[in-house]
Design a protein around this nucleic acid. Sequence first.
DNA 1: AAGTAGAATGTTCACGTTAACAAAAGGAAG
DNA 2: CTTCCTTTTGTTAACGTGAACATTCTACTT
Lengths: 334, 334
Amino acid sequence: MVTIKDIAKLANVSHTTVSRALNNSPLIKEPTKKKILEIAAQMNYTPNFNAKSLVKQKSYTIGLFYTSISNGTSPSFFADTLKGVNSVISQEYNLFVRGIDDYSDYSSIGRQRYDGILLMSQSVNDNAFIYHVMEKNIPFVVLNRDIEEKNIINILSDDKEGARQAVEYLIEHGHSDIAIIEGKQGFKSSQQRKEGYISALIQHGIQIRSEYSASGNYDMESGYRAMEQLLSLNTRPTAVFCSNDDMAIGAMNAIFANELKVPDDVSVVGFDDIGFAQYTMPRLTTVKRPVEQISVEGAKKLLSLLNGNEQRKEKILANTELMIRDSVKTLAKC
Amino acid sequence: MVTIKDIAKLANVSHTTVSRALNNSPLIKEPTKKKILEIAAQMNYTPNFNAKSLVKQKSYTIGLFYTSISNGTSPSFFADTLKGVNSVISQEYNLFVRGIDDYSDYSSIGRQRYDGILLMSQSVNDNAFIYHVMEKNIPFVVLNRDIEEKNIINILSDDKEGARQAVEYLIEHGHSDIAIIEGKQGFKSSQQRKEGYISALIQHGIQIRSEYSASGNYDMESGYRAMEQLLSLNTRPTAVFCSNDDMAIGAMNAIFANELKVPDDVSVVGFDDIGFAQYTMPRLTTVKRPVEQISVEGAKKLLSLLNGNEQRKEKILANTELMIRDSVKTLAKC
DNA sequence: AAGTAGAATGTTCACGTTAACAAAAGGAAG
DNA sequence: CTTCCTTTTGTTAACGTGAACATTCTACTT
């Protein structure tokens, strides 16, 4: 392995001069710098990041942590977040990916190893990890999940507004018998999506009917069951807002199973815009959560923090986008 | 930051003794070791991996490289491979993730930075990277894509056999007018899946008809177009083997668009078993590529290599599995 | 009791880099 | 030509750890 000392010998200067030249220090005369740079290139020199890290007390490493890599994280979430973060991180930084549940204890997670941490949080269970990171004084950003705690940079999508818009879209297309299939009990996201649903109804003066609220837990199967329950009502809803796409797919299957059609008999709207939403039959109208954008913003924020720019420790809401496809029917307004 | 020297002072021993105790050296007396370990735990000591790396000439980092993170890699592929690798890598190692196309030059990729490299290869364009890694003498394993080169550890699924089994399954269910929608021209995988298709037909004495070969390029749209072409034939095939699931979904859409039904009018089989295959209507029968298993095997192989166990530089084929769902109809044999 | 082998611990140095301080070289002013 | 800055370069130490070699301590043999 070629080191700066090797270069120094060849260039007939001290290794410090080489170091300075490579780091583009203004202290070095142009011709000297040029000569050194040439030799370095010729010798195929690669800096040793470990040595650099050791002396600079910086790891040049950013940790990207998920709640879990093995359990529950949806494929498209991985792909989108990784894409987003990856596009921002410069070559100077290493990107390390791990699941929080891979660790039995967090002792190996310290400042020396990570300059900063991006946490794609999907569960309240992550809080222990968050406290550890705060305690260790590692710069970090929490993405995707709403953290109650103040003084944390927290970027997530505005689920309430997204849900409101989706339901408003249904109303504008003539629906007023609109049901909701709720997300997992106790999840902040479930609550906010429901709030959006309610807010849209109120805003348009539509009465809220408790029998139009069916509970689910974010998986397909629960969407199916919730839909069956809704279909068995005396006055069947003409449209259903599902708190995520998986449940929407389950709901659509339940509708088909009852020999009804989407959107002719029942309109369906989802939430998330998973990759598969455009491959369903019919293609699913849904609320796109800007996961990739959140990742990009989060990574940028973190990098800026690492560069010493003070950031406001605030919550940032990213806008959702309604992806209009084919699962909603326009009703003639009565 | 607490270092072994701090511990040494408190324990009234030399820092080397601490180092040995922490590394569980047999040279240290039990009571001393115990005392040191206790103090370390109490002080919340975290080893500095940079210093360790520097002196041991080891980076404790495994690079997981994809052909691209931004382009073309399917979400489920990310998720499955990451899961697989992650489950094997011990806490001792860092997992570094990047796309090859993130690099304009490979100069920063050297032995000091990576103890070993896992390459999830999806394109011939990766070859330049492979040569670089070989030249730098970094231990590595190529996964997923068939590499012609000898003397490379190369783990991939047995696509030919998988395709053969799928087509055989169609034949066993009474089909003999079986078409194929081929994968992207020039891809090794396309070729091997087609070979499997042909081999099954020959084996069962079924004549190969050139008009039953439609070309595609692995995306939905191409599957749709290929299927339309097949449907326009005088003697429509009763079953279609699609070289991947995306094209199978496209093909199913084409069948529906022509007011035909899957599987009643045409049976469809896919390849890959993407997550969505079980959510299609009807659920897609397909060949599951053991992506996660390949990742696990590859990571194990690499770790074993890093631990100094010589590995045979060979090609390993992993078995596919036919996922039987609802997109194939049993025909009465004539 | 002395000698000795072996176990346990300590000293010193090295890894490759940057930083603090030191020194030399060059140039301007008197 | 001194003297004194300023610019450029060099010397030395430090980061935290592990390894080679050195030393001390123990326990056993004679």
